[in-house]
């Protein structure tokens, strides 16, 4: 009775979500199904014109090496393409659910969220259909498939598939430009006063465990192939370097915001002149899909060591940067003060 959605005019957000859902179904389900239906119909119409045995598999040199009856060939195509379409659809719908909403409750458009997987669906169904149709069509009316048939079929399939994927990608909406989080009030700095803020963030134990595991796995090549020292030696260096990036030290001073690894290797710097504003935010690693150096759904660049407080910097010419770090509020306040003084 008190459901606010009842009776009252539907809010635009819900209407958009419903529209998006319809578009998503069209792209991920109906479009691939239509392609499959058309390709199947064409093959069925071709059956009378095909020999009793058609080539369905080709060796590396393009020569046919497996044959079957035309009916089985159509059936095989149907099963394969339906399975592929179903798994992409599943991945798209499941991926949407697995994505966490941002911690600040900001809305992310459904279609923007699933854009990468959704664009694959029409592309792959067209790829498979084109390959099968070209290969089958080359055997119509008793023709022998030439050596170039298989490469041409695959090439044409990839070309048309990529084209379809690109068109879908363009048609689906990009993630909205993120609403900048409210800027942290600037610290009160006296004219001429100098200040530096520094804090660090380290990864949770699970990340250390994974790196330890990676290091432990190196025992295998060391024992199995001691002579390939250059291989496991360089892997060892990579793991060791990885271990030094499990912590980040962030500094805010007259030069801007700088993030370094615990060894002092500079990861990124935002000069004061590029700082539009800074805010302290709560970060969930899920927003960025994990730990490390990432992009999130709203196009923010992230250096994510763990969940919790972080500084979000709106940059003049680049996407916002989010760095997780303790005491983010003080850091953001100082960055705002220094940036304002530099302007």
């Amino acid at each position: 009775m008190t459901d606010p959605n009842l009776g009252a005019p539907e809010c635009p957000a819900a209407a958009q979500e419903r529209r998006d859902r319809r578009v998503l179904w069209a792209v991920v389900v109906w479009l691939p199904l239509a392609v499959i239906a058309v390709a199947t119909a064409i093959q069925l119409l071709w059956i009378p014109r095909l020999p009793e045995e058609v080539a369905v598999h080709f060796g590396v040199a393009g020569e046919p090496d497996r044959w079957t009856t035309p009916t089985r060939s159509v059936l095989g195509y149907l099963v394969l393409s339906l399975a592929v379409a179903a798994s992409i659809a599943l991945a798209t719908f499941a991926g949407r659910r697995a994505m966490l909403r941002p911690a600040d409750g900001a809305r992310v458009r459904l279609l923007a969220q699933v854009r990468p997987t959704a664009a694959v669906a029409p592309a792959v169904s067209i790829l498979i259909a084109v390959v099968v149709l070209v290969l089958t069509g080359a055997q119509l009316d008793g023709a022998e498939p030439a050596g170039w048939t298989a490469p041409v079929a695959v090439g044409a399939g990839i070309l048309l598939g990529v084209l379809a994927g690109w068109i879908t990608w363009q048609a689906l909406p990009a993630p909205d430009r993120p609403e900048p989080s409210a800027a942290t009030p600037a610290l009160d700095l006296a004219p001429g006063e100098r200040a530096v803020w520094t804090a660090s963030a380290t990864a949770p134990w699970i990340v250390f465990a994974i790196i330890g595991l990676a290091g432990a796995c190196l025992i295998v090549p060391i024992v199995m192939a001691p002579s390939a020292w250059w291989l496991w030696g360089s892997l060892l260096v990579v793991v060791a370097l990885l271990a030094t990036t499990t912590g980040v030290r962030v500094t805010v001073d007259r030069r801007g915001l700088t993030a370094r690894t615990l060894l002092g290797l500079r990861l990124t710097q935002v000069p004061l002149a590029d700082v539009v504003s800074a805010s302290d935010v709560e970060v969930l690693p899920g927003e960025f899909g994990g730990w490390g150096f990432r992009y999130d759904l709203r196009g923010r660049r992230g250096i994510i060591m763990r969940g919790g407080p972080g500084i979000e910097v709106q940059r003049r010419d680049a996407a916002p940067l989010v760095v997780t770090v303790s005491d983010a509020r003080t850091g953001a306040a100082l960055l705002n003060a220094l940036a304002a003084a530099a302007r």
Binding site: L189, A190, G192, E193, R194, A195, V196, W197, T198, A199, D327, T330, L334
Partner: peptide, 9 residues
């Protein structure tokens, strides 16, 4: 940690 200094003081 924040460190502030004022050369004018």
């Amino acid at each position: 940690m924040i460190i502030r200094i004022d050369p004018a003081s």
